[in-house]
Amino acid sequence: MNSKNTVVLMVEDNEHVLELNRSVLTRKGYTVLAEKNLTATRLLLKEHPDIDIVVLDILLPDGNGLNFIPELRETTSAPVLMLTSRRDYEDMVQGLTGGADDYMTKPYRVEELLARIAALLHKRETAHMSSELIRGPLTLDMVAHRAFLHGKDILLKPREYAVLLYLIRSEGQYIMAKQLYETVWRQPELDDSGAVKTVVSRLRKKLEGSGYVITLGRGRGYCFERET
């Protein structure tokens, strides 16, 4: 994954470590969001749920980063790199079995931090290429046939999922309702069916807040595109 436009959330209460890491990551092209405690992190995630990777300290002023991971997973599926001065083997095991993707102890070289972040992002991108279709905060699981917005299942019905998948794969192109109906319903379109219109209407509501919309072009059909 290219670092440009990649968002890193750093949760670290050590001012020196925080500023050093922020400076290094920013120079490498990452967008860095930083907080010093869990309370502020919760508020930030409500405003900026589209995180690509989280670098999380364990010992924070208002809680333990290890215990925060399950809560974090309710908001984002981004990989989590634990960064801590604690060297207890039990902490490492708890972190990795509790949802963290990697674990680093202080002190460390910034080159190692950069390498670990790049490796986690690459691993995530590779895994998603075959099984997931991602558009911003919207993720389609093509194995389970489910769609998630900001990490939450938007509970699509089978035909809603099929229509959305078809439109996303044709992103930026207008697809006639007849073509959608014949592909998804697998039967010739009935002039009075209204089925496609009904499904698209439901999808529009479920896509609110995703940054993407399904537009209707008169005489051209439906188009999945980025919201302007």
Rank of each mutant, 00 (worst) to 15 (best):
E189V: 15
N21Q: 04
M142G: 06
R27G: 15
V54I: 03
R226Q: 11
M10I: 06
P158D: 07
V110P: 12
L207S: 06
T126D: 08
P107M: 00
T76Y: 05
I175N: 03
L203I: 06
Q173R: 13
L18C: 09
D91S: 11
R204V: 02
T126A: 12
L164G: 04
L114W: 02
V24I: 14
H150S: 08
A144G: 03
K4C: 09
T76K: 06
L164K: 02
N14V: 14
A119H: 07
L207A: 03
M10D: 08
M104N: 05
G221Q: 04
T75C: 15
A162W: 01
V8T: 07
T31K: 05
P61I: 00
E74M: 09
L207E: 02
P158L: 05
T39N: 12
R42V: 14
M1D: 13
R86W: 06
K157V: 14
P61E: 00
S193Q: 07
I175S: 05
S3P: 13
I175T: 15
Y108P: 13
T139R: 09
E132A: 01
Y30L: 05
S201G: 10
L81T: 13
R218C: 06
G98R: 01
R169L: 08
L180N: 06
R204E: 07
L66S: 10
K197L: 07
L56E: 04
V80N: 05
T6V: 15
L33T: 15
E208L: 08
V196H: 09
T105V: 12
S85E: 05
K46P: 07
I154R: 04
N5G: 12
Y30D: 04
G99C: 02
D88A: 14
A115F: 13
E47C: 09
Q187Y: 11
R186E: 07
I154L: 04
T39W: 10
N21I: 00
R42E: 11
N37V: 01
M92E: 12
E35P: 11
R226K: 13
A147H: 06
A119I: 14
K28F: 04
K4Q: 08
L167T: 01
I134T: 12
N37M: 04
L133D: 09
Q173Y: 13
E125C: 10
L60Y: 03
N5D: 15
K28D: 08
E182I: 01
R220P: 10
W185M: 12
T183Y: 14
D192F: 11
L96P: 09
S3A: 15
I51Q: 00
T26G: 10
L167S: 07
L20C: 08
L165A: 14
R124L: 02
F224S: 05
I214G: 07
I117R: 01
A177G: 15
Y161P: 14
N21W: 00
D192K: 08
H145V: 00
Y89D: 13
